[in-house]
Simulated scan of single mutants.
Amino acid sequence: MERKKLKHPFFVIIGPSGSGKTRVAEAVFPSEYKVISHTTRPIRKEEVEGADYYFETEEGFQHLLNMNALAEFDTYHGNQYGVGIAELIQKTTDHYAYDVLTFKGFQKIEEQFGNMIIPIFLDVSKKNVLSRLQTRENDTILIKQRGALYTQESQNKNKIITYPNHSIINANQPFEKVVKEVEQAVNERIKKLE
C-alpha cells in the first residue's frame, strides 16, 4: 500500500486506561491541534460536540465506514471510535496535531502515513491506574473492567519501542513532570522531522 503524506507530524498519545492520557495531552497541546475523533459513545454532560468528539449514531458511523472515510476505527467498551482521514490531513496542513488513541488505532494510521505518526506511550503502574480510576469513576464494575485491561494495554509498550520515533514517558511521576517530559519529547520529534 502506498503511504499518504502528511505535511506535519501527528502525535498519538497511548497508554493504559487511567494513565492520564487525555489530561496530559490537553496540558501539552493547544486545543485547536486536536484531531477530533468520531464515536458512537453517548455524549457526557461536560463534553462539546465537535470539540471533544463528533458524536455519531450507529448508522452515521457505518456510513463513514462504507465511505472509507476513517483512517482507523475500533470498538472500546462497546462503543465505536474512529479518526477521519480528511480531519487528520486538514489538521496537519499548517502545524502538527495530536489525538489520544489505542495502540491498534495508532498502528492503522502509521501503516497509512508512516513515520509522521509519532507514538508517545504513558507508562504507569497498575497500582496508580487503579488509584486514579477509583477517584474518577463511581462504577465499581467499570473500574474492575478497566483494571483487567491494564495488563493487555501496558504490554503495548513493548510493541511501541519497535517504532523509530517513539517516546516512553514515566507517568508514575507528578503530573507536572509528566507534562514537561511529553513537551520535551514533542519538541525533539518536531526538530528531527521538520
Results as ranks from 00 to 15, higher is better:
60 G>M: 11
143 I>A: 02
120 I>F: 04
25 A>R: 02
186 V>P: 02
164 P>E: 08
79 N>T: 09
110 E>M: 07
46 E>Y: 14
189 R>A: 15
45 K>G: 05
64 L>E: 06
42 P>K: 13
81 Y>L: 11
151 T>R: 12
140 T>P: 14
69 A>P: 03
120 I>N: 10
14 I>A: 00
97 A>I: 10
111 E>H: 08
6 L>V: 03
27 A>E: 15
23 R>H: 12
58 E>Q: 14
185 A>N: 09
165 N>Y: 13
1 M>F: 05
181 E>A: 10
26 E>G: 04
142 L>F: 03
187 N>C: 06
162 T>G: 06
75 T>L: 10
111 E>S: 11
105 G>L: 00
152 Q>A: 00
8 H>I: 04
114 G>H: 02
85 I>E: 10
168 I>K: 07
76 Y>A: 09
38 H>C: 12
132 R>L: 07
64 L>F: 04
114 G>N: 01
35 V>T: 08
26 E>H: 11
57 T>A: 01
172 N>E: 12
129 V>Q: 08
177 K>R: 10
77 H>C: 02
89 I>F: 03
14 I>W: 07
40 T>G: 04
147 G>H: 06
157 K>W: 14
121 F>A: 01
4 K>T: 01
92 T>G: 00
165 N>R: 11
30 P>K: 13
9 P>M: 09
77 H>E: 14
144 K>P: 01
80 Q>W: 10
165 N>S: 08
121 F>E: 00
86 A>W: 10
181 E>G: 06
17 S>Q: 01
8 H>M: 07
168 I>M: 07
105 G>P: 00
128 N>S: 06
95 H>Y: 12
66 N>A: 14
18 G>N: 05
180 K>L: 13
177 K>Q: 14
78 G>D: 04
120 I>Q: 10
176 E>F: 05
106 F>I: 05
97 A>Y: 01
101 L>D: 14
137 E>R: 08
1 M>G: 11
77 H>P: 02
70 L>P: 00
157 K>S: 12
192 K>T: 10
12 V>D: 07
45 K>P: 05
23 R>P: 02
27 A>Y: 02
144 K>L: 12
3 R>T: 08
173 Q>R: 15
139 D>Y: 05
56 E>H: 04
131 S>Q: 12
83 V>Q: 09
84 G>N: 13
75 T>S: 11
96 Y>Q: 04
30 P>S: 13
28 V>P: 02
84 G>L: 13
136 R>H: 08
23 R>L: 13
176 E>P: 05
49 E>H: 14
87 E>L: 01
98 Y>S: 01
88 L>I: 09
118 I>C: 01
111 E>K: 13
120 I>E: 08
163 Y>H: 07
98 Y>F: 15
47 E>A: 06
158 N>T: 12
145 Q>G: 07
26 E>M: 10
113 F>T: 09
187 N>W: 04
116 M>V: 03
32 E>Y: 13
34 K>W: 02
78 G>R: 11
137 E>M: 14
19 S>W: 02
81 Y>W: 10
